[in-house]
Simulated scan of single mutants.
Amino acid sequence: MAFTKHILVILVLLGIFNICNAQGLKLGFYKKTCPPAEAIVKRETARIISVAPTLAAPLLRMHLLPRILRGGCDGSVLLNSTGNNQAEKDAFPNLSLRGFGSIDRVKSAVEKKCPGVVSCADILALVARDAVSLLNGPFWPVPLGRRDGRVSNSSEALANLPPPSFNITQLKSSFASKGLSTKDLVVLSGSHTIGTSHCSSFTSRLYNFTGRGDSDPSLDSNYVAQLKRKCSATDTTTLVEMDPGSFKTFDEGYYTLVTKRRGLFTSDSALLDDGETRAYVRRQATFKGSTFLKDFAKSMVKMGKIGVLTGNQGEIRRRCAFVN
């Protein structure tokens, strides 16, 4: 499970992005065909998060994850495996994804009102936004009109997920190659402010960083000691808060942790290795005049237009786990 949670947090943003027909997206896309669609999604998401606030983080990451694989947000991660095909969700790196039942619940509510009209990909984009907003995060406009893909293959997940060892140069280069800026990189890293991680995603930093039984020197030594008390070298089940004490609130606390060298993942520590990202981290960590929430909203709008299916591409699934 060493790749699992780390990949689902920030490296989900680093896969193979193809900028496709984002021009087909628009605000109010369902105004005539299903006027209550967005209100239904918001209502159902609020009900889910009120009972299980920790689902907000995996729901956000589920929206981001498909960009690694088939190049866009087409709901492919929601598809179930079949007798002759193992789907993305069942690939080893994705086994800790959760919240599929929540998406099914929202989809069912929308289908009751407007059958066969609203795509699972659009529902996922709206749920991610609404879940973040409900944890005191920003609310951003979500242009709609995505179509659902028909292909989901676990081999693509295994082949395209990058290793959890990218340094800042690799991170910047990967983002730039997809039309995303260094600022997008450091802003979207702020999604670590909510959610938890399995110990197995970072124990190599604690126990065997260079293969010599050592710890990552970029981690605060006191934090290493704390994490070792929670996680043994072979622990694959224990969950650790990524933003301790504030993991259910979407705020700037993540950046304070990074400045203290307490970012849980390698990609967190890497943000201190570049002048631009380091300056942003330190600025947000002051909590005075922070622009993080506004910046995150802008970056999410930008991300939401990458690699979508629109027009006559794909389909509108009636059940998110199955092609029609």
Score class of each variant (00 low, 15 high):
Leu8Arg: 10
Val9Trp: 00
Leu14Gly: 11
Gly28Cys: 11
Phe29Ala: 14
Thr33Asn: 11
Ala39Pro: 06
Ala39Leu: 09
Ala39Tyr: 07
Lys42Met: 09
Ile49Ala: 07
Val51Ser: 13
Pro53Trp: 07
Thr54Leu: 12
Ala57Asp: 09
Ala57Met: 10
Pro58Leu: 07
Pro58Gln: 10
Leu59Gln: 03
Leu60Glu: 11
Arg61Asn: 15
Arg61Met: 07
Met62His: 04
Ser76Ile: 01
Leu79Asn: 01
Gln86Thr: 15
Ala87Phe: 09
Gly99Asp: 08
Gly101Tyr: 06
Gly101Gln: 09
Asp104Gly: 13
Val106Met: 07
Val110Ser: 07
Lys112Gly: 14
Pro115Val: 05
Gly116Val: 05
Ser119His: 08
Ile123Phe: 11
Asp130Leu: 08
Ala131Lys: 01
Leu134Ser: 09
Trp140Met: 02
Pro141Thr: 12
Val142Thr: 13
Arg146His: 07
Val151Gly: 00
Asn153Tyr: 12
Glu156Met: 12
Ala159Trp: 04
Pro162His: 09
Pro163Glu: 10
Lys172His: 02
Lys183Cys: 00
Lys183Val: 09
Leu188Glu: 09
Ser191Trp: 04
His192Ile: 00
Thr193His: 04
Thr193Leu: 06
Ser201Trp: 01
Phe202Ile: 06
Leu206Ser: 01
Tyr207Lys: 06
Asn208Gln: 05
Phe209Val: 03
Thr210Cys: 03
Gly211Met: 06
Gly211Phe: 10
Gly213Lys: 04
Pro217Met: 02
Ser218Arg: 14
Leu219Asp: 02
Asp220Asn: 15
Tyr223Pro: 01
Ala225Val: 01
Leu227Ala: 06
Lys230Pro: 00
Ala233Tyr: 09
Thr234Lys: 13
Thr234Gln: 13
Gly245Val: 06
Gly245Trp: 04
Lys248Thr: 14
Tyr255Ser: 03
Thr259Asp: 11
Arg261Ser: 14
Gly263Lys: 02
Leu264Tyr: 02
Ser269Asp: 05
Ala270Ser: 13
Leu271Glu: 04
Asp274Gln: 08
Glu276Cys: 02
Glu276Asp: 15
Thr277Gln: 04
Ala285Ser: 14
Gly289Trp: 08
Thr291Phe: 01
Lys294Asp: 13
Asp295Cys: 05
Phe296Asn: 03
Ser299Tyr: 02
Lys302Asp: 10
Met303Pro: 00
Gly304Ala: 04
Gly307Pro: 04
Leu309His: 09
Gly311Tyr: 04
Gly311Trp: 01
Asn312Arg: 13
Glu315Trp: 00
Cys320Met: 05
Phe322Gln: 11
Phe322Lys: 08
